[in-house]
Amino acid sequence: MACSIPLPPPGHPRKYPEMGGREGGEGWNRRQKKATPMNASADHNDALFRYLLRLGDTSHILCHRLGEWCGHGPIMEEDIALTNVALDLIGQARLFYQYAGEVEGKGRTEDDLAFLRPERDFNNLLLVEQPNGDYAKTMARQFLFDAWNLLLFRALERSTDARIAEIAAKAVKEITYHRRHSSGWVIRMGDGTEESRTRIVAAFEQLMGFTAEFFHMDDVDRQMAEVGIGPDLESLRDPWMADVEAVLAEATLDWPTATWSVLGGRHEGRHTEHLGYLLAEMQSTQRQFPGLNW
């Protein structure tokens, strides 16, 4: 779905009215639920479950992409650095999946959630499923994400859900380092050689349109924001833009000119075609031999 990046309404309220049935709300295969007093708690749990999957899927899919670099990095030291980021991300993903499994209460494990859900049930950001491309694309993807993810997790540190707050407190330290690493590379590439500059400019042009998803709220996000579990994503936009702008400036780069933007992965499981292949590979062992211990 093409849409322009929605600007934050001036002084918009923290609480949103009910907006059930709106496009971008319920996933295609989810039971539609109305929040009535009788199933309010079940409704909350369902929203929390889905919120946790978004966090887990995003970390996991990005970890997977970074894992593809392992052994193929531009220099040994960088290979090690990138794998460290991947390891942080898989650690975060596991914590979210484990919690999601408990919240759902159907006995699904972290691995059931990671390896046995179909593509349409994955709710990672579209940005992180994009193929690695060259090292400029990988670093541009990483930086755009890290800058946002750091803001998100700083907010999640203050989550009213103690478990999420605890995960976030640990993750913030890791993500702070990720952002330092990726922003450093954006600067080196932007203000490096002609070739590196051409490549990093092209990378941002290819990727910027996927960042609209960072700030787009659906019912689940709003429900989580209402009870103080997650932040109002719109509120992350200004600080994110300021951070990205500052790093681009240091890299002597302009804001990308691309005006397109897309949504779909995080809310609805409508992905680019890349995710299907990623999952086909990732899930192949579990799918080939169902129900075994590994």
Binding site: I75, E77, E78, I80, A81, N84, R180, H181, G184
Partner: peptide, 20 residues
């Protein structure tokens, strides 16, 4: 020891290589 283009990356690489 390790290889790095600048002091900042030398610190980062040292962290990843020698304090894992």
């Amino acid at each position: 020891s390790l290889h790095a283009p600048d002091a900042e990356l030398a610190i980062q690489n040292a962290r990843d290589l020698y304090t894992r």
